[in-house]
Design a binder for these strands. Structure first.
Lengths: 338, 338
DNA sequence: GTGAAAGCGCTAACAC
DNA sequence: GTGTTAGCGCTTTCAC
């Protein structure tokens, strides 16, 4: 059996309250007492019992993180960054995957595991703003992405419209006029919100430059996997639609597109320039390397954790809506040959 | 404040022991009582307090998972599979990243967060078998990979030597004789164990076919990122070493190699056939798609969770060493043109 | 600076 | 089938 505070106190010859004080770094303890206690802790290899501490404090230092799938590069990187940020704050992250399922997202928000954690960071895909009340829960929630807006909850997100417009303008600046959009909203498709915003940015940029908007160039996809990028390019080529650039609303789609453009024998970027969205670390190793929009994932990770911790400490403050900055990252898939 | 068992009991007009019985699915309760209690639970939106339950039971239903980095595809997929397997068993996973750091691996094993979880699954990279006693801890540990063997602890791992030999033999069967090995052990390199075993398999296969073993074809790397695969091919080409195939000890290295071979204008697989190791889902979307060794990651995830749960339930059973099966997955990077 | 004691919410042994 | 009670290990108010 593991040693308890009492065991340590007995060995050190002090009251067990004193041991608790030492463990919690309480100030006014004589040096001799402190070192006696520390020696006893060392000898018994004492570790505080977190369940007891949590029960007493009503706080576990655990937070939940609910993302669609760790196998998607964006979420693997986001999760990695959130775990590291949390660790630096003394917080432990309990990750779960919602697999694009409405049920699992509701379970993440409402299920009994919420009880274990002090708060939750969630990136909802299947839920929409119509489900806004699902997000109003006993314990703090920070919502990522813009598929959902729930007025009484904290949000941390990216500037989707502006960033998508910037990517499109960048392609226009390269002289491209027939810019395909892969991953626009589709009637039954998931990720409506994000997709809609990036589509909006794309159209805004075209309009701003007087480029007519051709519906044939806007390709909806099922989900956001590489295979969907492949399929989009395939359908474009099959239909014989001319195009000289591709803006994919996510890097996975862009990587799939790259693969299929290569397979079709097209030159990138001479025949078709390609830019994605998310700035995954994989982009550098694509053939050719993939230009992308860095939408601020690293900032989002840090801001999400800090916003959640702040809300836990301060439950009554008004909800915040925070957006992080973006940047275009230029690589071979759009670079002019020099 | 959240409702407690007592609140529910008061509302339902029963003793709070009865409520506990209902919550825990105890058998002998009258249907009327049960439904009264359930109505009260519903009305108060009661959720059991896990800290209290854990404190009482000495068991949290939380397990730790320590992997090098979620940004590495293999570990993202492994983690994803472990989380899902655990969830199906009612267990929650608390993931941390050890970043190839010896200190962080020791912290995962010995640190105070061990206290929160019932057990730990760890894939050590920086620690070696010389650190075997670090793995002997109060609470159950399951060790993944073969960088470490600690005799009194459970292990779940893959058949590295056999799988690497099979990959090499497969290339030999394709008529290749100058097979480069990317990711062999290097004096100061990490992941010595895994690397050494796969190198051993490679050499065994060559020897079995009477192919002389050329040290120039064995390329050590720093870590196992795509950039290291790029560097390995670059050095090979720069040195003018002839080669007609590449076996990379991990897919990330192989994907980097693919990228650099493409950049050098070599035809894959005609000039150089490439096979990796791990069967990441990315492999399908590489250009060309990457052949690989499926070393049994999915089985490892399930087996690791089950072995840990079994050990938690049964702390005194003898330690086990379990190996899962592998398979060669053929794709374009090694396929003969038809 | 240290000690005694209450109680966080729950489970389970023990009565009835 | 239901009620009473002890106690898991800890933090913290209140004394001294």
């Amino acid at each position: 059996m593991a040693a308890t505070l009492r065991d340590v106190a007995r060995l050190a010859g002090v009251s067990f309250r004193t041991v608790s004080n030492v463990v919690n770094g309480y100030q006014y303890i004589s040096d001799t007492t402190r070192s006696k206690v520390e020696a006893a802790i060392e000898e018994l290899n004492y570790r505080p019992n977190y369940s007891a501490r949590s029960l007493r404090l009503g706080r576990s230092n655990l937070i939940g993180l609910a993302v669609p799938a760790l196998t998607q590069g964006y979420f693997a990187e986001l999760t990695s960054e959130i775990i590291d940020t949390a660790r630096a704050r003394g917080i432990i992250v309990l990750t779960e995957q919602t697999n694009l399922s409405r049920e699992l997202e509701i379970d993440a928000l409402q299920g009994s595991r919420r009880q274990i954690t002090d708060g939750l960071i969630i990136d909802p895909i299947a839920l929409t703003s119509e489900d806004a009340d699902q997000f109003v829960t006993q314990r703090p929630v920070v919502v990522l992405g813009e598929n959902v807006f729930s007025p009484s909850v904290d949000h941390v997100t990216m500037k989707n419209v502006e960033a998508a417009a910037a990517a499109t303008e960048y392609l226009i600046g390269l002289g491209r006029r027939r810019i395909a959009l892969i991953g626009t909203t589709s009637p039954g498709g998931v990720t409506m919100g994000t997709s809609a915003l990036r589509t909006q940015g794309y159209r805004q940029a075209l309009a701003a430059h007087g480029i007519p908007h051709d519906p044939v160039l806007e390709l909806p996809v099922g989900v956001w996997g590489r295979e969907d990028g492949v399929a989009a390019i395939r359908s474009l080529i099959k239909a014989g639609t001319p195009f000289d650039a591709v803006f994919a609303v996510t890097d996975l789609l862009a990587l799939g597109a790259l693969h299929e453009l290569n397979a079709a024998g097209l030159d990138i970027p001479d025949d078709v320039a390609v830019i994605g969205f998310d700035d995954l670390s994989d982009d550098v190793y694509a053939t050719p390397s993939l230009s992308s929009v860095d939408a601020g994932r690293r900032s989002i990770a840090a801001l999400a954790v800090d916003t959640l911790m702040d809300r836990i400490a301060n439950p009554d403050r008004p909800p915040v809506y925070r957006e992080v900055d973006f940047a275009i990252v230029e690589r071979e898939s759009t670079r002019r040959h020099s």
